[in-house]
């Protein structure tokens, strides 16, 4: 590309360089730069997601290619009727997790707000609260199982005559009778115990995001609010919180996706009875003992996918409307 062609090109201030002004080899390079990652991502992420949708309408043992056949909505009928005692408790657990993690997000926001008050040693507090986030949920599960929940020595069993089996106890704390189900769904004691372990990790994550968000809030906004006579809660509720909208959206997405994706801690602890979630149901129907139900497993997967997609679409619309590219 010579300077002449650039000089004669109409000046388009604020516009990005047009693709057509590039040399041939540059165009080839750019196509490769876009093409290779895109193909990789589409082939190994989006095509499998679509294939799962197709497989959810099929019956297949997953062993021999070509033995699968389409069966229409039969797998969905199966999971919503015959297997309702598997599907709905898992969905309910995911729902409880979502509500619980949302509360944890609020706590994380509170921590961030307090640390942003010019507390001395903010960095130390921040490191402490954030530390669990770098651990895998599997390791979090093991640490809590051996140190906090252990029947023999767990700190939660400290001073109890009859130690509680936190990980094994599938007794329900409360149950809800849904009109379309024969058996009630509810929160089991061991799932509640796992929730506490997950909170330990989630709160620090959210706190760090909000700390960054709070730092970016223009201090003159708070000044204005306090001059106008807002008390602390009003200035947070009406000024700081709305200004942090981008962070709020990210935290919401993280919370929802984490709640729907939950898997590691439950499988690492050998899937105690009563702690089933959607991710575990999908996996159990596909591999390992009881696996080989590709159609049913995929149907569970599609239910999970639809729940996620709702939020993903909402998030993307939100993000790209405000940050037009």
């Amino acid at each position: 590309m010579s300077t002449d062609t650039l000089a004669t090109a109409p000046p388009t201030p604020g516009r990005r360089r047009r693709y057509s002004q590039l040399s041939k080899s540059d165009k080839v390079w750019l196509s490769l730069m876009v093409g290779i990652p895109t193909v990789l991502h589409v082939v190994f992420v989006w095509l499998p997601a679509l294939a799962t949708i197709v497989l959810s309408f099929a019956e297949w043992d997953g062993i021999k290619l070509g033995t699968w056949q389409l069966v229409g909505f039969r797998n969905y009928w199966t999971i919503f009727t015959v297997l309702e005692d598997k599907l709905f408790p898992a969905l309910f657990n995911n729902f409880v997790l979502l509500v619980f993690l949302s509360l944890c997000s609020a706590v994380g926001m509170l921590f961030a707000y307090l640390l942003d008050k010019g507390v001395r040693g903010t960095a130390i507090y921040q490191s402490v609260f954030y530390m669990p986030v770098v651990l895998s949920l599997a390791v979090v599960g093991f640490i809590w199982k051996s140190v906090m929940f252990s029947q023999a020595q767990g700190l939660f069993n400290l001073g109890r005559d009859k130690p509680i089996d936190f990980v094994g106890n599938a007794e329900k704390i409360f149950t809800i009778h849904l009109p379309f189900l024969d058996n009630p769904v509810g929160l089991s004691k061991n799932f509640a115990a796992l929730l506490i372990a997950m909170a330990w990790r989630h709160i620090g994550y959210v706190m760090v995001l909000y700390l960054a968000g709070l730092k970016s809030v223009d201090s003159s906004l708070r000044e204005a609010a306090s001059i106008d006579g807002c008390n602390e809660w009003q200035s947070f509720r009406r000024v700081v919180f709305p200004v942090m909208k981008p962070i709020n959206v990210v935290v919401l997405v993280i919370t929802v996706i984490e709640a729907l994706r939950a898997f590691d801690i439950i499988v690492a602890l050998k899937q105690p009875v009563g702690t089933s979630v959607m991710g575990v149901l999908v996996k159990n129907n596909l591999v390992g003992e009881g696996g080989g139900h590709v159609g049913v497993g995929s149907a569970y997967g599609v239910v999970l996918l639809l729940l996620c997609l709702g939020f993903i679409v909402w998030y993307l619309v939100n993000h790209y409307r405000e940050n037009e590219l």
């Binding site: 876009v34 497989l55 596909l286 996620c308 679409v313 993307l316």
Partner: peptide
């Protein structure tokens, strides 16, 4: 393309795994 990449990253792994 950016939409595709961002959304893809949010999909749950369990949904992709059988075909892979």
């Amino acid at each position: 393309l950016l939409l595709l990449f961002t959304a893809g990253n949010l999909l749950p792994a369990q949904v992709l795994f059988q075909p892979l």
